[in-house]
Design a protein around this nucleic acid. Structure first.
Lengths: 242, 242
DNA sequence: CTTGGCGTGTCAAAAGCATAACAGAACACC
DNA sequence: GGTGTTCTGTTATGCTTTTGACACGCCAAG
């Protein structure tokens, strides 16, 4: 199981940067930029150029040694690597507030994850339309997953039902679960899970905030909000104190 | 700027695990468990016991060498470390679908982040009530932030306005920004930002899915969904193929 | 009182990741 | 045609994080 399957033994950290690269490149593409050097691209993302080249290196040459990257070549290459060269059929399971919000988030469509169905058990929600799509009964999920070759499921049900629903999704043939429930899911081999834990995010932020406040009160007796000077931003799901 | 301010020079990865520890411990506390060993706690979170002890070690002894951890001691200790011993006043800026969904997400309240205001510029939304709180005009934000000592702001406006709104939040005195917009924010020193990038998450998942499919078609000619056997779950914002 | 088992705190080894350094390819200019 | 510059692919170095190992404290049983 530790085999080197093509371009799949890539550091976790690199994987999380690929979408950022793609995003920025699409932006450049949209404004007509044709070439971009590793330095330019890296700086605009607040990372080191060497890291970017290192990341790309996992997937073979995107450019010849002497020439900068060609945006029009790089975008489809990254899309292929990430697996969104063709749209990835996706469903949303759980049509509560969060599920509805995600269903309304058109960026998902635009970025290669068309929503092929929204499901819930609540009879009051079933039938309600969101962006032209009705909320369907859970019973219909398996059928649609199979008939439309759905690969990814976004799970936005309450934590108490998350495992049970995840089991159904897996049984129906879903290979990737984007889990918003505050529960660790148990899934069989060959299924990928990504937990997007709101509480974790805000608590990590709180820790940083606490540290900032402590530093301020300890260091300077009276330090007030002043002129914005330095900048700091961040990629992925991590964060940075600036 | 590289000073060792109390317990604040802690690895990023450790910070992201603290909320998971707390969550699990609260669960144990709720069902009446009094003591827990590092092994038990670690296994239930799918991490190594040595890592858990190492993490705790950053903050000094939670237990005496020979005794297991006492849940009732650990929970408040972690809450103090994370900075949620007392509730952290929080606001939501941007009352679109996602903002409303988060406002409805009562777990935020329960976990120490009471929502002290929901703001938007859209006159159609202003006045609408969510969980007993009206959506207010952006103009009122700064006042409330100051009067209620709001520390954290959840930013759910469109990417095109994110930077501008973030500037207002910082100027009003907010110290931590939980950013859901697909934009890198520039903030002055002394402000923490955490980006929760949906697109990054789902694309990272997609990469894993693509790898799984490739492995399946390459390795076994006909491999069908079988009996769930092994388990795999994940904390934070990371993910794991199982 | 002694002994054995368990469990933490602590340190050392290993792995993973980020950064820097370098060699060589392409192009532009002279 | 040569030469200098720019840029990538690649390898090497250093650092952070994870994992493993161990010494000692505590408790229970004999």
């Amino acid at each position: 199981m530790r085999k080197k399957r093509k371009g799949c033994d890539v550091p976790e950290a690199t994987i999380h940067r690929l979408p950022l690269y793609l995003e920025k490149l699409k932006l450049l593409q949209a404004i007509g930029v044709e070439d971009v050097s590793s330095r330019q691209l890296a700086e605009s993302l607040d990372i080191k150029a060497s890291q970017l080249r290192h990341d790309f290196h996992y997937f073979g040459g995107f450019s010849r040694p002497g020439r900068p990257y060609q945006v029009d070549k790089l975008v489809p290459a990254l899309e292929r690597i990430i697996g969104i060269a063709d749209p990835v059929p996706t469903i949303i399971v759980g049509a509560g507030h969060l599920g509805q919000a995600l269903a309304n988030y058109q960026n998902l469509d635009l970025q290669g994850f068309p929503i092929h169905g929204i499901f819930d058990v609540n009879p009051r929600l079933i039938g309600l339309e969101i962006r032209g799509q009705p909320i369907r009964d859970m019973d219909e999920m398996a059928g649609i997953v199979r008939s439309e070759n759905v690969l990814i499921g976004i799970l936005t049900v309450p934590g108490s039902h998350a495992q049970e629903v995840a089991d159904q999704m897996v049984k129906a043939g879903i290979v990737g679960i984007f889990n918003f429930a505050p529960t660790d899911l148990k899934v069989p081999q060959g299924v990928a899970v990504r937990n997007e834990r709101l509480a974790v995010g805000i608590m990590a932020l709180s820790f940083k905030v606490k540290c900032i406040l402590e530093a301020q009160t300890q260091a300077s007796p009276a330090d007030e909000v002043g002129a914005p000077g330095k900048t700091a931003a961040e990629g992925d799901g991590h964060d940075q104190v600036s």
